[in-house]
């Protein structure tokens, strides 16, 4: 999708990752930056600074990513990282309820303290751990989708996730999933956040998160961009697009949701 003929305007975006310890912040970044995954990754100490470019149809976004440590003792340093940030990725672990509570705290803090225009994305990570749930739930719930064999891939899962959430909602404790899609989604809508469920392990939806954020950054807040279309409209469109994007990815039945889709980097 990249237009190779003319150099596109390029701009930097400061992005910060926040969230409870061990939810997979560093793994998301590692997937996005290096397209790599390390099981049993050791906890981040302090913060890591990485950069990665994201190609949009009309421009290039260079993400300057602050991947912060989730432990409490580092919380007092967080303002240093989200100050002046144009985007924040607040991550929770869909297999751990307390991590969503922590995520909500971070969202509240960002809304209170960070720069007013900050784009916040709420991300539920570790979707791969819930594969079994979804399959089981699917088998139980209906024979209608019996054709969807287990060997089909990611699009399938997210569809199943969407479908089966209701089923899992009512205290099915044996499943890995502890935070329902519906609950998190409604919270995200309430707070006007971008929302995704991802798997850093499989790469599912990881690229989409960053692309959506890149799209949602208001052009006015970008340094060094060309004087473009009406900024307000552009932003609005980007936001809508992003939301659509997320909806599409979550509900689409086909497997077009590769991790690098829409982000040629």
């Amino acid at each position: 999708m990249a237009d190779s003929s003319a150099p596109k305007p390029s701009s930097s975006v400061k992005l910060v990752l926040l969230g409870e310890a061990a939810v997979g912040k560093s793994s998301l970044v590692l997937r996005f930056v290096n397209d790599d995954f390390q099981p049993n990754k050791e906890p981040t100490i302090g913060a890591a600074f990485l950069t990665q470019k994201c190609q949009l149809p009309t421009r290039t976004i260079k993400f300057e990513i602050w991947d912060t440590a989730g432990q409490e003792r580092f919380a007092s340093l967080a303002p240093m990282y989200y100050r002046n940030a144009q985007a924040a990725l607040v991550v929770y672990d869909i297999t751990k309820e307390s991590s969503l509570v922590k995520a909500k705290h971070w969202v509240a803090e960002l809304q209170r303290q960070a720069s007013p225009g900050i784009v916040i994305a709420l991300v539920g990570n570790k979707l791969d751990l819930c594969e079994d749930d979804e399959e089981a739930a699917e088998e139980e719930s209906s024979g209608a989708s019996a054709t969807a064999a287990a060997d089909d891939e990611e699009g399938e899962e997210s569809e199943a996730a969407a479908e089966s959430t209701e089923n899992n909602d009512e205290g099915n404790n044996s499943t890995a999933r502890k935070v329902s899609l519906k609950e998190a989604k409604s919270y995200a809508d309430e707070e006007n956040l971008l929302f995704f469920e991802t798997s850093a392990k499989s790469g599912h939806n990881v690229g989409e998160v960053f692309t959506a954020i890149a799209n949602a950054i208001p052009e006015t807040s970008l340094k060094g961009r060309n004087a473009g279309a009406a900024a307000g409209a552009g932003t609005q469109a980007a936001l809508t697009g992003a939301n659509e994007n997320s909806r599409v990815n979550l509900n689409a039945a086909s497997g077009d949701g590769g991790p690098k889709e829409g982000c040629a980097c």
Binding site: V33, I45, A48, F49, L50
Partner: peptide, 20 residues
Amino acid sequence: NMLFEAGSVKAGGGENWIPL
């Protein structure tokens, strides 16, 4: 030890800013 034994820092790639 932090840099070379406990892979936390080097595994991530990128640069690190560590209070200690």
